[in-house]
Design a protein around this nucleic acid. Structure first.
Length: 418
DNA sequence: TCTGGGGTCCTAGGACCC
DNA sequence: TCTGGGGTCCTAGGACCC
């Protein structure tokens, strides 16, 4: 039988920050979202204080002060680099892995004789090579492996490793786990299940498949099957090409004027096109959206406009032109805007383009050369070549008050050994 | 005062066609 | 006056994930 392992980094962002700040060992550490708005990661010590992922900073500020919590703005460049090192280490333990997220990796451990011992070796090696503590859960399906991992984190006496290949162990754990902690059961469905009297993972596992399908969806049916050792979610070793690119931000302060908003949209559009080029993709469709804050007591407005290019492109100018027109369609004076962004869809690899029947194919060679040149210059000079509609001064840009140095990706920030 | 950003998949309902 | 049934495609919104 197939065995899935899920390796998950413990408090990943907080652990990364601690690699370079050994003085923070066993001290509470918190990492904030973009804009320093809310908590996205916290060390065990913070969890013990009752801080939850998603808590806005202003609501927990008193705890931060009272317990001298060290706070970091998120430093995604640093986290991505450390993540790559962790994943690289894991790849030496199995030929079949799926990098599931920045801090999680599913692996096949078929044919392994002593699973628990092997898992401990994985743990020790990752810690030694990267400084990041991980937990390992093993089971016949991904959903059960997630559950095993959950237990490995929750119960310290497991030493961070839980082998859930045995059915009776599965049952005993499922009895203890609240239904909302099952992978695939979120807040909404968790509530609905509880209203039906389904409170534990075991009760969910014992539900009638037909009822689940009828009252919920095929997605939850798969979850139930997976809890019963029937593997429905395969390992995805080669990542599918992405379906969309989103570039959006909440603003540091509310936006009320059209000019700065137009420039913000141009900035997102440029970033989006850059992402396409970096991954050798093109897109056909762009959506532009602006919206007020759903948390504010002022009048609300939220609008999206979508437009299509005749031919898929990754040329910033094509999208800037279209995005400008779309923006004019949705802009409405008199609101306090909190967030805006663009979404690129109908994406294809740059070498597999669908040509238009009606329009002669556009020769993109010149455009490609220009964009390549711009990207190259911007890579080495930190964004010096801009388009007319972008603006140099980005006063709406993020608050990142507590940013750590880019220890591993900027020469100036290399840590110095004393 | 202050509530992230980036993704995926599924479903329901409307438009339209025969 | 009467106003079907079956199908496709598209979109908005819901739900989940990290």
């Amino acid at each position: 039988m197939t065995t899935f392992a899920l390796v998950d980094c413990n408090s990943f962002y907080a652990s990364v920050e601690r690699i370079f700040r050994p003085d923070l060992k066993n001290k509470p550490v918190l990492v904030l979202s973009n804009n320093d708005a809310c908590c996205v990661a916290k060390s065990r010590e913070c969890r013990a204080l009752g801080i939850k992922t998603g808590d806005p900073l202003f609501k927990i500020q008193h705890l931060v002060n009272a317990h001298k919590i060290t706070v970091f703005s998120s430093n995604y460049t640093l986290y991505a680099d450390i993540s790559a090192r962790v994943m690289h280490t894991l790849e030496s333990f199995s030929p079949r892995v799926e990098i599931y997220s920045i801090d999680e990796c599913f692996m096949h451990l078929d044919g392994c004789k002593d699973l628990e011992q092997y898992a401990r070796k994985i743990r020790d090696t990752v810690l030694q090579y990267t400084g990041i503590p991980v937990s390992v859960g093993m089971a016949p399906t991904k959903t059960l492996a997630k559950l095993a991992n959950h237990a490995a984190k929750k119960y310290p006496q497991t030493g961070g490793v839980v082998d859930l290949t045995n059915s009776s162990r599965q049952k005993r754990l499922c009895e203890l786990v609240p239904v909302k902690d099952v992978w695939g059961v979120g807040r909404r469905i968790g509530k609905r299940l509880e209203n039906m009297g389904i409170r534990t993972a075991l009760q969910l596992a014992q539900m009638d498949l037909k009822v689940v399908r009828q009252k919920f969806s095929i997605v939850l049916e798969r979850t139930v099957r997976e809890l019963n050792e029937e593997s429905c979610i395969e390992l995805e070793e080669t990542p599918a090409t992405r379906r969309q690119v989103i570039c959006s931000r909440s603003f540091g302060s509310k936006m009320t004027e059209q000019g700065p908003m137009r420039e913000a949209i141009a900035e997102f559009t440029t970033r989006g096109a850059e992402k396409l080029r970096k991954e050798k993709l093109r897109a056909c469709v762009i959506s532009v959206f602006i919206r007020t804050s759903p948390h504010a007591n002022r009048s609300q407005y939220s609008k999206t406009a979508t437009g299509r290019l005749i031919q898929a492109s990754s040329d910033s100018r094509d999208f800037l032109h279209l995005a400008g027109k779309l923006f004019e369609q949705i802009w409405k004076e008199g609101y306090h805007y909190a967030k805006a962004g663009i979404i690129l869809t109908e994406i294809c690899p740059e070498n597999q383009m669908q040509l238009s029947l009606l329009e002669p194919p556009k020769d993109s060679a010149a455009s490609d050369r220009l964009m390549q040149t711009i990207d190259k210059i911007n890579q080495t000079t930190n964004g010096k070549v801009q388009f007319g509609s972008q603006r140099e001064e980005q006063d709406w840009f993020m608050n990142r008050t507590h940013l750590s140095p880019s220890y591993t990706t900027r020469w100036e920030d290399l840590p110095v050994a004393k």
